[in-house]
Design a protein around this nucleic acid. Structure first.
Lengths: 205, 205, 205, 205
DNA sequence: TATGAATGAGATTTCATTCAT
DNA sequence: CATGAATGAAATCTCATTCAT
């Protein structure tokens, strides 16, 4: 038993393992406690309940991810079309590198969040992220549409592309273990994605 | 109590509702039986166990879907580049219309399969479909690479695009309730996908 | 499926197998019916309940065995000592041969009765047989004691020897598959038993 | 409710009663818990499962009994015939007194073990004991046969006598409640048994 | 004769959670 | 900070049995 590590840390570690193996609902708190070398009572000193324990693993990384997503784009100020194109082109690599770094730095937490959260309040995490992306780019798309003649936003495509971009990140983190390679791949995907974006989201009125 | 409908039918219907609401693992057989107006014993006359009940809802539509995916593309015969391009361009609309029709005809079953199957043997259904797509197109991609100078297949991109296309279908069925609109949307997405494919999958050696 | 054999016969056969394998309590009527190729309802046409089914296998052989045991010795008439000795010595071989024949002729039934009847009204079958033997020989022992000076019956020994003789038969049928060899063995055991009996059952007052 | 006694003790006591009444398989854990004044969950804090609860009652006494049986006779060293006879004669009273004491000291446990264990891993306890006795005496019998002219071991009789001796103990504990009387009875049986042993086990070649 | 369907009670086991110490 | 004990509800599943057809 790792008596050096604090009990709370050991609990979080065995929770990670158990949630990963069985998924949230089927995971057993007894097993988690036994693996951590404590009794169930101890768990309840540190965590309010099962969901809270799960949250202790995924919540902070998730919130930071949301901050990254939100912080990137300030939808307040109105931009000109050329400013926008520049912003899109230049901004993506920075953003995606930061996102990728964050994802890989919290690899296990995001694995849990993305694939084992059914039954928790995080089960719609992907949807949340998609919605944030959707909102962020909707503002921009609408501004663009206003500045171009006879163009309007195709809501379905906007949403789907938001989904696609989030999925691209998830796919990356679940399939490519090496972070620097991941940055390269994502750069290529993003280039392509940016070019497609205007074409798919804006359609003739 | 719906005494007209057969008991088995009623059980399947309340199972559908309960699985949809709570997910496979948290769904309660008691509740399902109570909703169907029978005792738990009755369920076990018709279904071997909980997983078997879930399978009774999703298995057949899933198998048919896999047949559709497999049947579409005969990877055996070697094609010329131009045949391939034609095949890609033309083939997709037929396939996707058939797929979309099948998905919408079994709407609830696919919802369960795609979003509530954690804990069952179907929990990797998406992966399976992605792998099938991946295999199908890998053969074509490699054939293309052989016919073009200095080109090779980028495995990561191939797999990601397979994921993307499957996700596109899932996204469609989970976001667009109208089937004919869905066909229109998918046609546009497929155009985009085909272009992406050629551009991203084959890279300079 | 053995469609020649009557259903009842098939049911009894699969019941024998299931009871042998699992013991009465853990045996499953469903399994018995399935093995016999009928549904549970059919069983209840032929047998009142589970115990009745078990009885259908063991009751008749058991009753016949009890008749054999009882018929052998007519405790009514008073015998002289010498008649008694003669009876004991000579009678045993006939009796035991008849018993052994009956046991082997109904081998499986007695296996069930002796080792798998826990939970049925037959669970005290061995005790019953021991008691019958005890009663039979008690009468004789007491008559003997009356005809001998300063002798009395040791009840414990009488009962234990009754137990021993029944156990000898059971041991035989559960350990020696060949009937004719069994007769030889039992002859030797009986010699021994007769001597033991005289020596142990009658003790000084 | 007996709040003085520890819960575990109360559980074991009501388990003893329930197992005695219904046999292992038909015994109800619900009833045991209710009788002990706790909920079913409490039982699983102390015992892994139903069989483990049964084992908690019978296992230790059974193991001690086996130790007694094994410890008694050291089959290693070769003895002369006269040593053997002395050993047999003298050894039995000690051994049997120790055995009887142990049996009576754990009266209820052995009742369960011997008559209610069907369905548990102890269901062959009697066979185990018989086999131990058989092995122990086989060595001695074979050594004897080697030292006598034209004699060989009759395996069937050896095994039967082993059975008989074990049965004698079981019969004693199930029929004679008074321990000191039991010692007296067993002494007499053993005398007799020892004399018979040579006669029955060794036969002419 | 036998089926197919259903009952209703009961089985063992597991769970998250609580709390006095 | 942690234990050991216990709760109480719920879980899935199996059982012998019944009965209309």
């Amino acid at each position: 038993m790792d008596n050096n590590k604090e009990t709370k840390e050991r609990l979080i570690e065995s929770a990670r393992a158990e949630f990963s193996e069985k998924g949230y609902t089927k995971a057993s708190l007894r097993k988690i406690c036994a693996d951590a070398g404590v009794t169930t009572g101890a768990l309840y000193f540190f965590f309010k309940d099962k969901e809270n324990l799960f949250a202790a693993i995924v919540e902070q990384p998730f919130n930071e991810l949301k901050s990254l997503l939100l912080g990137h784009f300030t939808s307040e100020k109105e931009m000109s079309l050329s400013e926008m194109y520049a912003h899109i082109d230049g901004g993506h690599d920075e953003l995606s590198a930061a996102l990728i770094h964050h994802l890989y730095a919290n690899y296990e937490a995001f694995m849990l969040l993305l694939t084992k959260a059914q039954g928790t309040r995080f089960e719609s995490a992907v949807d949340e992220m998609v919605d944030m992306t959707d909102k962020t780019y909707r503002a921009m798309a609408e501004s663009m549409a206003r500045q171009l003649p006879n163009k309007q936003v195709n809501s379905y495509m906007l949403h789907w592309l938001s989904h696609m971009i989030i999925d691209a990140f998830i796919h990356l983190v679940t399939h490519e273990p090496d972070e620097s390679r991941a940055v390269g791949i994502m750069s290529r995907i993003m280039d392509f994605y940016v070019r497609s974006w205007v074409e798919l989201v804006l359609e003739g009125k």
